[in-house]
Write a protein that binds this DNA or RNA. Structure first.
Lengths: 152, 152
DNA sequence: GTGAATAGTTTAGCTTGGTGAAATGATTTC
DNA sequence: GAAATCATTTCACCAAGCTAAACTATTCAC
């Protein structure tokens, strides 16, 4: 098992460093990067919804979205359904040479994935899926602990 | 391939969130968490060696190590070989209930790893190793770009 | 042994990015 | 249609954490 955890540790470190490098490349701090990730993943969201997800107050979201908008990564649009709300959407065309990076990443991943047979891919998929589940479980436990300490 | 990248994306997000949750649990900010990780991984290191790895100036390291030391996660010791130098070592016994978290994580990983046969584990190992390599390559490219922009 | 170089810390000043209360504009309720 | 509510922004202020430069202690070169 030492092998598995060691690999996991290395992979985990690499992924965190990769995220940091991407954020630097985009000129974003942690909060802005996280916000952009949430918007890309979840689609357009009202500004207020970001506050709890980022763990900051509503007024701080204005500044974060300001900077993302000024950099061209997102756009603000009034929600036609409820014109009090401001929907923040990703402006994917403005992401700089990131396409190049993800293309290279995808290409290199593809290069070694191609040699696996169908069964081997199934194993890998099972492994990754289970790892995601296990990690998410631990996150949930940690967050639950925080919540308990926060409001006991 | 859409599957693979999607899984990769999910895994990547989970890992980043896990790291953040751990840092919050320890009461550490990003720089402190990164520094502690480096010290744990590399063993005792002189304070000055941390500065370039963290991407901060030497004077900032003092504050970072101060906070880690005050929290009990590391100790400072004068290097007997060169008494100008201060070796920063991890104080593992002081890490709080983290043992519990990593025990649970290891246990849950073990639970589903146990069902794989030897060949399946070899496939997984190959996959993880290659993924680490590919991600590290992209990091190296990004860092090289930064260096070029930084000092052309 | 003296002078230059090195490791770490201290200090002062500044930037960043946050909070919380009040303001603004839009929507719902009665 | 007036009043209460809601989403977001604005404003003034505050704290964290960084840099640059001065300072102390130690080592190395000659």
């Amino acid at each position: 098992m030492a092998h598995v955890t060691d690999f996991g540790w290395e992979l985990s470190t690499a992924i965190v460093l990769f995220h940091e490098a991407i954020a630097r490349k985009l000129g974003l701090n942690a909060a802005e990067h996280k916000a952009l990730g949430l918007i890309i993943r979840n689609g357009p969201m009202p500004a207020g919804a970001l506050a709890p997800l980022l763990g900051v107050g509503a007024s701080a979201v204005t500044g974060i979205v300001d900077r993302l908008e000024r950099a061209g990564y997102v756009t603000r649009d009034v929600d036609p359904a409820d014109r009090r709300r401001v929907l923040v959407s990703a402006a994917p065309e403005k992401a700089p040479d990131l396409t190049g990076i993800f293309e290279r990443l995808g290409h290199d991943m593809w290069a070694f994935m191609a040699k696996y047979g169908e069964q081997e891919r199934a194993v890998i998929q099972d492994y990754v899926t289970n790892t995601i589940r296990v990690v998410n479980d631990q996150i949930a436990l940690l967050v639950a602990e925080e919540a308990k300490r926060g409001a006991p």
